[in-house]
Amino acid sequence: MNRRRLIQSLACGATIGSGAGQVTSVLSLEALRNIAEAHGLRLGDERLRVLQPVLERRLPLLRTLREMEIDDRIAPTQGILK
């Protein structure tokens, strides 16, 4: 399974809950470890614990980004439009 698939499946499999009015997702350390190992990163528990809450917060944003549909004619731009 490639990295994109892994992150997509992770995003789909995440549990959505709401705490104090804010939407969060829940990831397990084990899931993160598997993702990291799948793309060649061996991360210790300490690094995984740093990552876990940040990724949890960002999953809803990533999910929204992935669901956005863009016209096929739109190419990426860096800097400014010429």
Binding site: R4, I7, L62, L65, M68, I70, A75, P76, T77
Partner: peptide, 12 residues
């Protein structure tokens, strides 16, 4: 893919 999609949205 996420990065490039963000750059495409940047065009918009």
């Amino acid at each position: 893919v996420d990065y490039i999609k963000a750059l495409r949205l940047r065009t918009l």
